[in-house]
């Protein structure tokens, strides 16, 4: 779509896509969660793209340890200043850890989405299910596709 530009500006190419950090050691869901397997537990968080889209996260509603989650089903909620968003489980399994520090420091999801911004740990029912998720390359293309819409 062409913009109705102010006559002072002719440069349509000013619209440069923001660059997002896409961690190479994760797989990604189409709802912008990352998942990283370490032994038998996979940690899950929000991608840099997702935290950037939400901006200013002020509350993370965490599930309880022991909850069973299904792939694609919501397991929690993030509230940012401007929006509320569900968190979806990338794979099925049991939640074996929740990042309780986020109750005091929800901004960690913005500051370090792949590190101390992790949200839950899942013991996946099927470890191979992770391989069926988006690779970093696929996810990068998927973001690009959406930001060009």
């Amino acid at each position: 779509m062409r913009s109705h530009a102010n006559p002072i500006f002719q440069q349509e190419e000013l619209m440069t896509a923001k660059t997002y950090h896409i961690s190479d050691d994760c797989r990604y869901g189409r709802t912008d969660e990352w998942i990283r397997l370490d032994g038998t537990v996979a940690r899950v968080g929000l991608s840099d793209y997702a935290q950037s889209e939400l901006s200013d996260i002020v509350f993370v509603e965490l599930p309880s340890v022991g909850t069973q989650v299904e792939a694609g089903e919501p397991f929690g909620v993030v509230e940012s200043v401007k929006a509320v968003s569900d968190l979806f489980a990338p794979v099925s399994g049991e939640i074996v850890e929740v990042h309780e520090n986020l109750e005091e420091h929800p901004e960690w999801v913005n500051e370090d989405p792949y590190g101390r911004g992790w949200i839950i740990g899942i013991a996946p029912e099927d470890l191979d299910a992770i391989d069926g998720l988006l690779t970093p390359e696929d996810y990068r293309a998927y973001i690009k596709e959406r930001s060009e819409k």
Partner: peptide
Amino acid sequence: APRRTPLYA
């Protein structure tokens, strides 16, 4: 399409 202010750039 959305309009732009003079400060868009």
